[in-house]
Write a protein that binds this DNA or RNA. Structure first.
Lengths: 196, 196
DNA sequence: GGAAAAACGATCCACGTGGCCTGTTTTGTT
DNA sequence: AACAAAACAGGCCACGTGGATCGTTTTTCC
C-alpha cells in the first residue's frame, strides 16, 4: 500500500470515527482518546494528521459537507418531484439521520469557538450555494436570490424539526408535524417558475 | 433578610449566571467555577443548592422555560396581529436573542445526556402546550392537534433560522430569509379559523 | 541499498474539572 | 440565651483531557 494511500485511509478512518463519536457522545464527548479508540489509531497518528483538536473538527466539517450534499442530491435525484409527500419523507429521513446530528453538534460548538466557526461558515456557505442551485434547477426558480432564500428557509425548517426530534421521546411524535409542513410548503412549491 | 429569601436570591443569581455562561461560553464552558465566579457565590453554595451538575442544568432549563414563555407571550400580546411583517420581526427579535442561544446549548447537550434530556423534554412539552394554546387563541384555530402541529412547525422554523444565525457572519445575512418565511406563512395564517 | 522523510505508536505532563469534605456564619425556635 | 438547622465558604483530590515529546516502522527516492 502506498504511503499516501495509507495516509488517506487513516485520515478517513479518523474522520469517520470523529463523526460517529459526535453522533453518539456529542462534541464534548469526542475526545482524542475516544476518536483513536474508534478509529483503531494511536494518539500519535491523530496528532500527526491533525496537530490541534480544532483541525480535526474542521476536517470533520468538510467530511460532513460531502456527506450532507450527497444525501441531498440523492433525495432530490430519485423519485417523483411532484409527489410532495414522498419528497418530504425523503428529506425527513435525511434530517432525522446521524449526519445532521453530527452537524448540529459542530454548529453549536462553533457558536463559542471562533476558529471552528469560520471553518464551518465556509463549509455552510458552500452547502447553501449547492443546495440553492439544486433548489433552483429542480423547482424552476429563476431568481437566484429567491432560490437561496428558499433553500435556506426549507433547510432551516428541517433543522428545527430535527432539533425537536432530540427532545421528543419518539419519532412518531416529531413526524406528526409533517402534514403541517406539507401544508406550509404546498402553495409555495406549486407555482413552478412563477416568481415575479 | 429571611433565610429562604436569601436562598431564593442565591439560586436566582446562580441560574442567571448559568444562563449567561451558557450563552457566552457554551454548555462545555459552563463549569461550576465559571458559574460561581459570575454569581459571586462559592462552590459550597452551588453544590448545596444543586448537588450535581445535572441538577443545575435542569433548574436552568426551568428558568429558561419561564423566560421563553414570557418573551413569546409579550410578542403575541402587543401589536397588531394582522401585520405579519411586524409579528415576524418580533419573533425574530426573540429567536436571535440570548435566551434561545442558551436553550440551543441545553438541547444539544441533552441529546447525549439522558438525565438532562428527560428534564428538558418535560419543559419542552410544557412550552409547546402553552405555545399551542397561544397559537390557538390568537389565530383562531379550533382543532387542538392542528394548533399544536402549527405551533411546533413555526417554532421549528425559527429554531432553524437561529441556527443559521450562528454561522452567518452578520445578522443581515440571516435576516434576508425573512421575506421567504413571510411568503411561506402568509397563506397559512390568512385563513383564520378555516380549518377542515 | 541506504538515507531521508513520512506515517505511526506510546508515554508523559500540566491543567481544569466535578464532586466531596470539613469548617463557619446566619437564621429560626424554644 | 441556647440550640438546631439551614445557607454558605473554600480547600482538597482523583481523574480525564489536550498536546508535546520521544522512539519505531514503513515507503520513497537516488
Amino acid at each position: 500500500m502506498s504511503v499516501q494511500a495509507r495516509s488517506i485511509a487513516t485520515r478517513t478512518r479518523l474522520l469517520e470515527a470523529t463523526v460517529a463519536a459526535l453522533v453518539e457522545r456529542g462534541a464534548h464527548g469526542t475526545s482524542l482518546a475516544e476518536v483513536c479508540r474508534r478509529a483503531g489509531a494511536s494518539k500519535g497518528a491523530l496528532l500527526h494528521h491533525y496537530p490541534r483538536r480544532a483541525d480535526l473538527f474542521a476536517a470533520a466539517a468538510d467530511h460532513l459537507f460531502a456527506l450532507r450534499l450527497a444525501e441531498l442530491e440523492e433525495a432530490l435525484a430519485l423519485g417523483d418531484l411532484a409527489d410532495l409527500d414522498a419528497l418530504l419523507e425523503r428529506l425527513w429521513a435525511i434530517y432525522s439521520g446521524p449526519t445532521l446530528a453530527a452537524w448540529l453538534e459542530l454548529v453549536v460548538a462553533a457558536r463559542t469557538d471562533p476558529a471552528l466557526r469560520v471553518a464551518l461558515a465556509r463549509v455552510d456557505a458552500d452547502l447553501t450555494r449547492r443546495a440553492a442551485a439544486l433548489f433552483r434547477q429542480v423547482f424552476g426558480v429563476e431568481d437566484p436570490a429567491r432560490a437561496t432564500a428558499g433553500a435556506r428557509t426549507i433547510m432551516a425548517l428541517f433543522d428545527g424539526l430535527s432539533l425537536n426530534l432530540v427532545l421528543g421521546q419518539g419519532e412518531d411524535h416529531a413526524r406528526r408535524v409533517l402534514p403541517a409542513v406539507r401544508e406550509l410548503l404546498a402553495p409555495w412549491l406549486g407555482k413552478k417558475g412563477s416568481s415575479p
